[in-house]
Design a protein around this nucleic acid. Structure first.
Length: 473
RNA sequence: GGCGGCAUAGCCAAGUGGUAAGGCAGAGCUCUGCAAAAGCUCCAUCCCCAGUUCGAAUCUGGGUGCCGCCUCCA
């Protein structure tokens, strides 16, 4: 391990030094989505955050194993299926595909496994049976409930007291429950719903049990990280802990990592509130690097606001980072080797220090906001160096290495390639700029400016540099 | 009502005991045919009150405001 990683653990409410279950390996379970409608911005947050965490561990030399579930058996899916008159699994299949497509477009690396409830009914039934046998669950008229009072640690994650939970119940309690706080592991089948055979009759799994069953199958007991949005802490993760730990007698996961919510006009973005920003739409409008930059600009545990125009605002800062990397890439082609001057050495040294600072920021509870801040320092260091006339290949290479590693490979916020242009656009632009350059040499600035202004109106900005004109869309 | 969290410049956002990173916006300068880009300089005492301490944005207590959860939810 190259360095110590510290992580804030929801369970202990403290930042802890990460000690892997198995040396050199990291196991991660991140709660995925219930696929019944469009993937939205809120879903992108845990995905991108964990994508970065996994990449970082990868860089640290860990072997990573990541599992993300799809809860494809669920009330909402069933409702939707009835409305559309198609099988429930068809609905979930459609939205799973859409989800994965969006995540791919966001540059999120695929998890190792994407288990679905519908394909793990046997494991789920097995786990429920174990809980019934243990005395932690009971059957009632085809339903099976988990008995919270049988699990002493109930509430340890969300810091809830059982008493309060019972009193806080705002909905009608199912009379079949022995305790108002008990929750369903298995639900007896209702007409028209998907159902599977079980020792308790036809039915389907309750909401939380799938994560216990599937994490156990793919990651085993006591895996390292369990992640998801902080809206899942209670009841979902609390219940997962109860089920898993009551069954195995071991801690479910060592570190519980929860990301903050994305809000829209001060309200959480959620399907039920209908204040959703579709990820597909955002991806069509903004480069993925900018989207990731936005998502990583705040510490993962904080809330993150979205509003119309926010990405445009962030885009100005993001461009600075991105353009610096692009230009550096170009400069590197014509960099000169040679003896290091005093200025070269100093810059090299500063870049080395900043490189270390980024690694340190990410090691400290995955502080991407700070990492980005340091990367802007890197940008200034490089630009200032070039401004002084520096062009030593070793120095530029170091700058490139730092940006490429962190902004490119780990955070993945750069867009180094020019955006795909429609067929001829690029060559036409080059031709137009060559003509304009000719005009400038003839000092026909009026016409040259007319071209520049015209292009600006079309969204193409021109920069005249000593190496010739650059354009960007 | 209970639980968890947050409150830092016009905006976004790090910092969690030693005298406030970074980005955007803004002002000035350099460079440029003019721009753009880039560089340099400037731009906050950290919600309020009371404590602890030689010293607090950072710890404690009390307020106020906001967010999340307690119901499906990333």
């Amino acid at each position: 391990m190259k360095r110590e990683v510290r992580v804030y653990n929801t369970l202990t409410q403290e930042k802890e030094v990460f000690v892997p279950r198995e040396p050199g390996k990291v196991s991660v379970y991140v709660c995925g989505v219930t696929p019944y409608s469009d993937t939205h911005l809120g879903h992108a947050r845990p995905s991108v955050v964990w994508d970065v965490i996994i990449r970082f561990f990868d860089w640290l030399g860990f072997e990573t194993l990541q599992v993300q579930n799809f809860t494809d058996v669920d009330d909402k899916i069933i409702q939707r299926a009835l409305k559309e008159g198609v099988p429930a699994l068809e609905i979930s299949k459609r939205y799973i595909a859409e989800y994965l497509e969006s995540m791919d477009a966001l540059g999120v690396r695929r998890a190792d496994h994407y288990p679905k409830v519908s394909e793990h009914i046997a494991e789920i039934i097995g786990l429920i049976q174990q809980l019934v046998d243990n005395g932690h669950a009971y059957e009632a008229d085809g339903d099976v409930f988990f008995s919270v009072s049988s699990f002493d640690d109930y509430g340890k994650l969300s810091k809830q007291k059982l008493e309060e939970l019972r009193e806080g119940t705002r909905f009608e309690v199912d009379p079949k429950k022995k305790d108002a706080a008990d929750f369903a592991l298995w639900k007896a089948a209702k007409p028209g719903e998907p159902a599977w055979d079980s020792p308790w009759g036809k039915g389907r799994p309750g909401w939380h049990i799938e994560c216990s069953a599937m994490s156990l199958k793919y990651l085993g007991k006591e895996f390292d990280f369990h992640g998801g949005g902080n809206d899942l802490i209670f009841p979902h993760h609390e219940n997962e802990i109860a089920q898993s730990e009551a069954a195995t007698g071991r801690p479910l996961a060592h570190y519980w990592v929860h990301n903050g919510m994305i809000t829209l006009k001060d309200a959480k973005m959620s399907k039920s509130l209908g204040n959703i920003i579709s990820l597909k739409q955002l991806l069509a409008k903004y480069p993925k690097g900018l989207l990731r930059f936005y998502l990583l600009s705040t510490h993962y545990r904080s809330g993150l606001e979205y509003y119309e125009g926010k990405l445009e605002e962030m885009g100005r800062g993001w461009s600075r980072l991105n353009e610096a990397a692009r230009k550096l890439q170009e400069d590197l082609a014509q960099a000169e080797e040679g003896e290091l001057t005093e200025s070269d050495r100093e810059t090299l040294e500063n870049l080395g220090r900043l490189d270390e600072e980024v690694a340190e920021a990410l090691s400290d509870d995955f502080n991407t906001a700070m990492a980005l801040g340091v990367l802007f320092d890197v940008v200034r260091e490089i630009n200032a160096y070039k401004h002084r006339g520096g062009a030593n290949s070793q120095v530029l290479q170091k700058g490139w290495d730092v940006l490429k590693l962190w902004a490119g490979d780990i955070l993945d916020v750069l867009e180094l390639e020019k955006r795909e242009q429609e067929g001829l656009t690029e060559s036409l632009l080059d031709l137009l700029l060559a003509v304009r350059d000719e005009l400038r040499r003839e000092r026909n600035f009026a016409l040259a400016d007319k071209i520049r202004n015209g292009l600006a109106e079309l969204g193409v900005s021109i920069e005249d540099t000593p190496q010739g004109p650059r354009w960007k869309v």
